[in-house]
């Protein structure tokens, strides 16, 4: 007895026949057409008008079917709006890498702003710990937001890795800001008053 092989949608991850309920139907259909054209033709035909008629041959009757279609359309609009909002938020946010002095010779790197980009900080800290063979932890900063702390002077390496991670997630345009607080502090001792460097 062979195992069943279900086709999961590459967009919404539902079994493809449930895409209409995912709120991402338009993109789901485009995916199906690309990846499983025979199923696309079978389910949605060439003319989209026929689709709703085909689907309307369900037991729940025209009126309820129409209501359902409307609800599903609304779901899709909502989903789209939400995704747009999320994307806008991501694009207007940035990751901040701060180099801080720990002792006179040693420093550490604090990375904040990751939560917006759905980057798993626990995983990232494990990756850094093994990649750079150093101590790495998660702690809360002054704004009570979590940040990843890497021990050692690794700002450049961390920056490169964060860039590659963002690119992997299709968010190449996201800004990564590097602040060298360790250096500034030294300068601060001689030239400016402390506090002014925090403004940046």
């Amino acid at each position: 007895m062979p195992l069943t092989n279900v086709i999961y949608c590459g967009v919404c991850d539902f079994p493809a026949e449930y895409c209409e309920f995912s709120g991402k139907f338009k993109r789901c259909k485009a995916w199906l057409q690309e990846n499983h054209p025979e199923l696309y033709t079978k389910w949605y035909g060439d003319v989209t008008e026929d689709v709703s008629k085909q689907l309307a041959e369900s037991s729940i009757g025209d009126e309820r079917e129409e209501k359902l279609e409307k609800a599903l359309e609304k779901l899709e609009r909502k989903q789209q709006a939400r995704e747009e909002r999320e994307l806008a938020k991501k694009l207007s946010s940035k990751v901040v890498i701060r180099r801080e002095a720990r002792t006179k010779r040693k420093c550490m790197i604090a990375i904040s702003g990751l939560e917006v980009f759905e980057i798993d900080m626990k995983k990232l800290s494990k990756t850094f710990a093994s990649k750079f063979a150093t101590g790495c932890s998660i702690s809360k900063n002054a704004e009570k937001k979590e940040e990843v702390i890497v021990q050692g002077d690794l700002a450049d390496e961390v920056e490169a890795y964060i860039h590659s991670l963002l690119e992997e997630k299709g968010m190449k345009e996201v800004k990564v800001e590097v602040i060298d607080a360790a250096k500034k502090k030294k300068k601060a001792e001689t030239t400016t008053t402390p506090g002014s460097e925090n403004k940046k």
Binding site: Y18, F21, S58, S59, I60, R64, E65, L68, A71, L72
Partner: peptide, 9 residues
């Protein structure tokens, strides 16, 4: 039935 799918999901 089809009408229940949305609620189940």
């Amino acid at each position: 039935d089809r009408g229940a799918i949305k609620f189940v999901l």
